[in-house]
Amino acid sequence: MAAAVVAESLTKRFGEVLAVDDLSFSLEPGTITGFLGPNGAGKTTTLRMLLGLAAPSQGRALVFGQTYAELERPSLRIGAVLEATDFHPGRSGRDHLRMLGQAVGVPDSRADEVLALVELQEAGRRRVKGYSLGMRQRLGLATALLGEPDLLVLDEPANGLDPEGVRWLRDFLRAFASDGRTVLVSSHVLAEVAQTVDQVLIISRGRLVAESSLEALTARLGGAVRVRSADPTRLAAALAHEHFNSTPNNEHGLIVSGTTSERVGEIAFAAGVAVHELVTEGSSLEEIFLELTAGEQS
């Protein structure tokens, strides 16, 4: 199947500053991709070029084979949220959706549907002024979903969400991608998206520094999982059976390298070993960045 999104040598210069530097990647349909990097790395600028809001200085970005602006009614194929605060405070959430929908022939009933989908049907007729940040995030998502898109592009959608909201978003994105639809979600916090995404694109200072599946990235970084269990010997054997090396740590602990806490938990469960503690170590984005940029320089 053709790629849903292709970036070809995408470059954006603001005067002297090179915000996005020769970025190339492609996203396969049906995948969830985390677009990661610290604040100011060029994530939003990249997404803005992808969505036709900003013109690239060089290169181009294609969505479903065309530039965004070339697509006829792109909002019926691509749903996007760039800022969680892009609402007129004096307008109701429902009217916000209606005014956007009317421009592309989406009926008002669809506005009510997406409000229900993001659990805002109660608040829909109230002014956005009174919405919490989490409610605004969900209204943004409702905006993106209006046109029943096949591709979602979300910039920092987990900002301002409480843990319950983050889980809701994760489940939502999983369900969205499960029937062949594609998600590109940016974040400056790896932990926020680690449990959601299939693959990651990591950029730093406008350049792509990593493009890989989450497992490959974890393995490449030698990310380790610390686990404390009732029977470390049996767990070590079960892990070895799955080709994961572990080293003893304290009395009941093991350090497992090259995997995720999810995988270790699943193996322990399958082996019937009770787990008392399960911690992923060394997976903060900063550490990954240090690894990756150090790797680039050597």
Binding site: L51, G52, L53, Y68, A69, L71, P74, S75, A80, L82, E83, T85, D86, F87, H88, P89, H96, L100, A103, V104, T143, G147
Partner: peptide, 18 residues
């Protein structure tokens, strides 16, 4: 100008890139 002030210009242009 309220579209620029409150950022609704972004969804507006996303829905109608012309």
């Amino acid at each position: 100008t309220s579209e620029y002030r409150y950022g609704t210009i972004r969804p507006t242009i996303l829905f109608t890139p012309r």
